[in-house]
Write a protein that binds this DNA or RNA. Structure first.
Lengths: 350, 350
DNA sequence: CTGAAAGCGCTAACAT
DNA sequence: ATGTTAGCGCTTTCAG
């Protein structure tokens, strides 16, 4: 391994001069800098990160903490962030929490001791107090979900509006007995979406409790289970709103298994736009989310502030809007087959 | 930050005693160890990785280098590995190459200078000589793809057999004009799959060159383009084999757009079993791959050998078999609608 | 403008 | 069984 000492010896200057030249210190002559840089690259010098870190400089590692990378949502985010951070000279580390606060804590501890430059996190419902403490000492941003204790720096989507759009679309089509399958309201996203659901229902309408099913948003099985329950009611709903990617998957799977056809038997609106959603039945009407753009914006902001050392805890919030993508899985209540022909090939976004 | 000195001062012993106790050194009395460990956790001591690394010990970071995390294949792998490595006390870092050898090199350089414990890599077609050199100095395993220069430590699937099964299934159904849309044969996976395709075709059959389309395996657009070409031939194929996840997606999208229905107009076999594949048309007949198991096996092996310091370059190869999942998108050549009723709900795996 | 020297936290050889 | 000491490669005062 080539060290600055080696370079110094070769150039017959002191190690500190070399160090300063490499750091582009203002009080080193241009000529010396020039020579140092030449020799350094010639000898194949690579700075020793460990040594640098020991001097208090943080690493070029950025921790990404999220529930489960297999969720298309999160892998899109990881990809976009990876690209942004790479541009800024950072490396992404991946930590999966499985929505468990202790796993989350464990990972945050690890990241802290690895001296990461910062953390981008999709927090669990109730982060452990120690996680909160550790994060306070680090530059960090919350993504998608926001927990008050973790600060005001957040990039997310307008969850309430997204589900409002979805539900309202059904209401406009004449549905009033609408089932809801989504995340528990202890999660900020879960409660925001549920709020959107309620907001879209006509005022005088009493929400039927049996129509609302809340569970783990990351669980496909919960989606299936909830759908099963909804279908087995004596007067089942005429439409279903799924309020997370995985519950959408669960709903679709269960409907397929039970041979329930959309939109003839039931209208369905999903959440997110995974590859397969457009292929399901007549094409799934769903809420499209600008996840990639969101992550890119977040990454750029992060890199910018880290580089400027301007990572204050000043509140910053960015809310991206969702758009409803109308395909074939929703229809006017009571309309017969073929009346509103939505081809899956000609999506309508509004 | 709490250091071993702080602990030493509190316990009135020397720093080295503390260090040794924490390292579970044999010549420290059990009693002292006990007290040290207690006080350490009580004070919230976290070892400083930087300092440790400077002493030559490698970090607890393991680099995962792959083309694109958005591919369901790779996110499944990342998830499984993350779990395994977490169990072994390691942290995963994510590097995307986009199948570009220079990006790959860049990442490998970064990982090297970050002193990673090892690298798990899905290599590009022709890794840069310097990448090869750098990897030689590090514990590493290849995943899915294998490049000879990178050594003999490999976990993968039997690509030839996988595509053989897929193609042979079509041949058994009477098809002999079969299109192939897959990755270029400069990639080991691409060439192995193409080999499986040829192997399944009847000996006396001349392969029609216009039926074979090779391109970037990670490109959905290539899949669409190739399908477009196949369909525009004067005598188009009666069946298509897609030989990568993304090309499968492209093929399916293009068929949908062009209004070509499987299995009536054309039989299709896909690669991999992404969420949406079962929902496409009559359900996609496809090659199922034990990706998660593969990655888990790889992760366990990796952790084991790193921990045992037994990371020799002795060849080790693990080949997992693929299984054909028969759904509705394939049918006996010439059979009319409804003849072979494959419900998407009752998959047949053989 | 450049050099000398201290020290970051930890480990390991060398003493007790 | 424990303590002392030196040094990993780098940054950063403090002196020239």
């Amino acid at each position: 391994m080539i060290t600055i000492k080696d370079i110094a010896a070769r150039l017959k200057v002191s190690p500190s001069t070399v160090g300063r030249a490499l750091a582009d210190d203002s009080r080193i002559s241009a000529a010396t800098k020039q020579r140092v840089i030449e020799v350094a690259s010639e000898m194949g010098y690579v700075a020793n990160l460990a040594a640098r870190m020991m001097r208090g400089v943080s690493s070029n590692l950025v921790g990404l903490v999220l529930p489960d990378i297999r969720n298309g949502f999160y892998s899109t985010i990881a990809h976009a962030l990876s690209k942004c951070l790479e541009g800024g000279g950072f490396q992404l580390t991946l930590s999966e929490t499985d929505d468990d606060r202790l796993t989350e804590l464990h990972h945050i501890r690890e990241l802290t001791s690895a001296n990461v430059a910062g953390i981008i996190i999709v927090p669990t419902a109730r982060p452990h107090p120690e996680s909160v403490k550790l994060l306070k000492a680090l530059p960090h941003i919350q993504l998608l979900r926001r927990h008050a204790a973790l600060g005001e720096q957040w990039f997310g989507i307008d969850d309430t509006e997204a589900i409002y759009e979805a539900t309202n679309h059904l209401v406009q089509l004449g549905h009033h007995r609408i089932g809801y399958v989504g995340g528990t309201d202890d999660l900020p996203t879960g409660s925001a979406r549920l709020k959107g659901f309620h907001k879209a229902l006509p005022r005088d309408e009493t929400v039927v409790p049996a129509f609302v099913h809340l569970g783990a948003p990351g669980s496909v099985d919960f989606g299936r289970e909830a759908t099963r329950r909804l279908l087995s009611l004596t007067t089942p709903p005429t439409a279903i709103v799924a309020a997370s990617v995985q519950t959408t998957q669960g709903v679709l799977e269960e409907l397929t298994v039970q041979g329930v056809h959309a939109p003839d038997d039931l209208s369905v609106v999903g959440f997110g736009d995974e590859m397969g959603f457009r292929w399901w039945g007549p094409g799934l009407t769903t809420v499209g989310l600008p996840v990639s753009d969101l992550a890119t914006a977040c990454g750029l902001w992060f890199v910018h502030h880290i580089k400027q050392h301007s990572f204050t805890s000043a509140p910053y919030t960015s809310i991206s809007p969702a758009t409803l993508i109308v395909r074939g899985s929703t229809r006017q209540l009571g309309a017969v087959s073929g009346e509103t022909a939505n081809s899956p090939l000609h999506d309508t976004a509004n």
